[in-house]
Design a protein around this nucleic acid. Structure first.
Lengths: 112, 112
DNA sequence: CTCCCCTGTCAGACTTGCCTGACAGGGGGC
DNA sequence: GCCCCCTGTCAGGCAAGTCTGACAGGGGAG
């Protein structure tokens, strides 16, 4: 879904995921280098539970992927990675997305 | 601010304004035709106070402009208009925006 | 055994956003 | 006078998002 036009709902969830300073910072940090959760928490000066929440929002929106790597010795570390994407946002895209929203009431009058 | 790279905060507010099915629909309807508030409320089947709130969020983000037109007879009608814009959203844009956020803690370590 | 680092998850407090009905007021038509 | 349309704003309730400290558990090093 990097060049394809997403459904309205997908667009909304992506935008909602992006509309947060914390998540913007997280995404930027993760895009720069592959890191694991605790390290990321230190870099960004935020509590881990909070980071977890934001991460799972980003993951739900499909913007990052988590990978729990279990080393041969048994210790596990969760690496987080940014998923490349592109969204072109303008009035036409909005108008298009607004048409395919769940609950767009297909019977509604488009033109008065 | 249609081709220029917005500050991180601006980006956040725009995305937050856009991350709502209601506001997407409002923006789409307003982009299609110039309408006034009450008429818009009827088209979208939503209460006016609710519409007002969403409109002022969109206006705060700079996505729509309101214009209170007072007819020669004294009756006034508020027309709402969409403001054209374009935002290219990808990892680079995110990384860039994350750098200029208020409270980006300029003294923080960029590279570990 | 003790200390440290890691991963998850939880309940609770707090803040913000969302939505509603109701109100005040301006103006026109009958 | 009454009724209809328009603009605004308000308090209040409800739902959702945000953030915190604390906990349980796995594993390694001294």
């Amino acid at each position: 879904m990097s060049g394809t036009s997403p459904t309205g709902d997908e667009l909304v969830s992506v935008l909602a995921a992006l509309a947060s300073p914390h998540r913007l910072r997280i995404l930027a940090a993760v895009a720069r280098q592959r890191t694991y959760v605790s390290e990321l928490a230190r870099q960004l000066h935020m509590n881990r539970p909070l980071l977890y929440m934001h991460l799972q929002k980003l993951e739900a929106a499909g913007l990052v992927t988590g990978e729990l790597v279990t080393a041969p010795d048994g210790s596990s570390v969760k690496y987080v990675q940014a998923v490349p994407f592109t969204v072109a946002l303008d009035l036409d895209a909005i108008a298009l997305a607004a048409q395919n929203l769940t609950g767009s009431t297909p019977g509604a009058e488009q033109e008065k």
